[in-house]
């Protein structure tokens, strides 16, 4: 706590960079996972294979994956960014599939019979009803990403991990504690905010 009290601006700046990294990676991950999940949800025989493959990526130890990515991309921002996007795929795509497949078939049949085009059915009926489930996936992914992003400090990236790994090398437990506490606080805040969003989009 002493480090945190002595260098609030430094911790705040690293926390801001941490949030930015996770937010950008989450946005990029959604750009991949949402179309992938929609595609898989339409094909019942594809979904288990796709989710199985994404689940396999999810089981790779993060430090090992990061080591491989550093081989390809070098040190810095890119390896941790790519790792975050890859890890998030499983949690996001799985919830897109579950959300879309969970929509009442009668409503989809009615939408078709009333003359909605396939994109209108997706945007006006399926997506609004799948949204709470998708936000649930975003919440789980965001928490995991905030935690995994600390490894970025190890590969010369940005964020609160810098404090933790500098603390390790410099034998400064106060820095490690400051970085960890800040990361925990971020995760708890994001979790609470997304829980609220999830509850607000749920249909009574």
């Amino acid at each position: 706590m002493t480090y945190l009290a002595a260098h609030p601006a430094r911790v705040a700046a690293l926390a801001a960079a941490h949030i930015e990294l996770v937010a950008v990676a989450l946005a990029a991950a959604l750009l991949v996972a949402v179309p992938l999940g929609l595609w898989a949800a339409r094909r019942r025989n594809v979904a288990p294979w796709l989710l199985g493959a994404l689940g396999a990526i999810y089981t790779i130890p993060s430090l090992a994956l990061l080591a491989v990515l550093v081989e390809w991309f070098g040190l810095g921002y890119t390896p941790i960014f790519v790792a975050l996007v890859l890890y998030a795929q499983f949690m996001l795509a799985r919830n897109v599939v579950a959300g879309i497949n969970g929509v009442d078939r009668a409503q989809v049949d009615a939408a078709r019979g009333l003359g909605m085009s396939p994109p209108q059915i997706l945007l006006r009926v399926e997506f609004p009803q799948a949204l709470p489930v998708l936000i649930g996936g975003v919440r789980i992914a965001a928490i995991a990403m905030i935690s995994i992003a600390t490894l970025g400090g190890y590969v010369g990236g940005v964020g609160l991990g810098v404090l933790i790994f500098n603390g390790l090398t410099l034998h400064q437990p106060q820095m490690i504690i400051a970085g960890s506490l800040a990361a925990c606080a971020l995760a708890i805040t994001v979790d609470a905010a997304l829980r609220l969003a999830e509850a607000n989009t749920r249909i009574s």
Binding site: D104, R105, A106, Q107, V108, D109, A110, A111, G113, L114, R124, V125, P128, Q129, I203
Partner: peptide, 12 residues
């Protein structure tokens, strides 16, 4: 017009 047994009102 189209009406079905399961009704299919849009829940949201």
């Amino acid at each position: 017009g189209y009406v079905i047994q399961a009704i299919g009102l849009f829940a949201h």
